[in-house]
Amino acid sequence: MSWIVLGSDGATSAQERATRSLYEQHARPLQGYVLQLLGGDHQRAEDVVQETLLRCWRNQQLVGGRGQDLRPWLFRVARNLVIDDYRLRSARPKEVDGTAWLEDVLADTDDVDRVLSSLVLVKAFQTLSPAHREVLYETYYTGRSTREVSRVLGIPPGTVKSRLYHAVRNLRQALGVPEAGVR
């Protein structure tokens, strides 16, 4: 980021020297401050610093030694630019890439998908033993607790837990779903 343009004879004006001094004194601390505000986004931080220094160059009297007391003004302008950018991004609809429509299409389930899922699930349920189907039904379909299923089926709670574990495991295998932690 270069701010100084030398004249054809290599000399710089007082305004150019003041601009160089502004950059040398304030750019690095301002960059660190803005970087913190933006959570480490270097590209956006650099843009904010450039805009802040440009506004200072346009609006402040740089020639005349005000260099050090400009810092609070610069930090306030930078902070306001970050806030304005945040508000602008919040007010605009979220930008999406060209594949977002595909996710929407795949996420929508229609009656055909539900019927196919039901058929696959019914076929997988048929591979389970009656005891396993019974425990799955009582637990997931009716929403009963282990203790309630134990009372309804007349078996100990430990047996309910064991059957439920094996039923879910066998159902996953029948559906072709890998077990957790296995890849």
Rank of each mutant, 00 (worst) to 15 (best):
I4K: 01
S13E: 09
A14N: 12
E16R: 11
T19A: 03
T19I: 14
R20P: 01
R20G: 15
Y23I: 07
A27L: 02
R28C: 11
Y33W: 11
D41L: 12
H42Y: 11
R44V: 13
V49E: 05
V49M: 04
V49S: 05
V49I: 07
Q50W: 09
C56D: 02
Q68T: 13
D69Y: 12
R71A: 15
R76A: 11
V77C: 05
L81Q: 09
I83H: 05
D84N: 13
D84P: 00
D85F: 08
D85W: 14
S90K: 15
R92L: 15
D97P: 04
D97N: 15
T99Y: 10
A100P: 01
L102V: 15
A107S: 05
D108S: 09
T109I: 15
D113V: 09
S118N: 09
L119A: 09
L119Y: 12
L119E: 14
L128E: 00
P130A: 00
A131E: 12
T142I: 04
R144A: 06
T146F: 03
R147H: 10
V149F: 01
V149N: 01
R151Y: 03
V152Y: 04
V152F: 04
L153A: 02
K161N: 03
R163Y: 13
L171I: 12
Q173E: 14
Q173S: 13
L175Q: 10
G176M: 07
P178F: 13
G181T: 08
R183Q: 11
